[in-house]
Amino acid sequence: MNFIFQKIRELTEINSLSKNEQLIQGILNAIDEKLVSKGEILPSVNAMIKEFGFARETIAKAYKELISRGIIKSTNRLGYFVAIEDTEQILKVALVLFNFDVFQEDLYRNFKEGLGENVHLDIFFHHNNIETFESILSNMKGKYGMYVIAPIPHPKTTELLKSIPANRLLMIDRYVPVDEEVSYIVQEFEEPAYQAFASLSERIKEFEEIIFFFKPSSAEPIDILKAFKRFLKDFEVKGTVKTAYVPGSVKAGKVYFTINNSELWVIIKDTIAKNLQLGKDVGILSHNDDTVKEIVCNGITTFSVNFGEMGKKAAEYVLDRQKIQEVMPTVLLRRNSL
Rank of each mutant, 00 (worst) to 15 (best):
E51I: 07
T75E: 13
S183R: 09
V119L: 11
L232I: 10
K143A: 09
R230C: 03
P216N: 09
G279M: 07
F212R: 08
I24F: 04
I267F: 04
S16W: 04
L17Q: 03
W265A: 08
A315R: 04
I72A: 02
S135I: 01
P329C: 02
K312A: 08
K61P: 00
S337C: 08
L264R: 01
P247W: 11
A193P: 06
E202C: 04
K141D: 09
L11T: 07
H287M: 12
I136K: 11
A315E: 05
Q6A: 10
A244T: 12
F214D: 09
V182G: 03
K313T: 03
V246R: 12
F207S: 05
N129Y: 00
V296G: 00
A219G: 03
F207R: 08
N2T: 13
G70S: 10
S74D: 08
V45N: 07
E188W: 02
A198N: 10
V318Y: 03
L11C: 10
V148P: 06
F189S: 13
E206T: 12
T291I: 15
T301I: 11
A315G: 05
E220K: 01
Y256W: 01
E131L: 14
E209L: 13
R321K: 13
F103R: 01
G253M: 12
V102K: 10
E236S: 15
V176S: 04
A244N: 11
T291N: 10
F124E: 03
Q322A: 09
P247C: 11
F3G: 07
P247G: 11
G253S: 13
L200C: 08
I49E: 15
S68D: 15
D270R: 08
N46H: 10
Q25Y: 07
S286N: 10
D101I: 00
G26S: 08
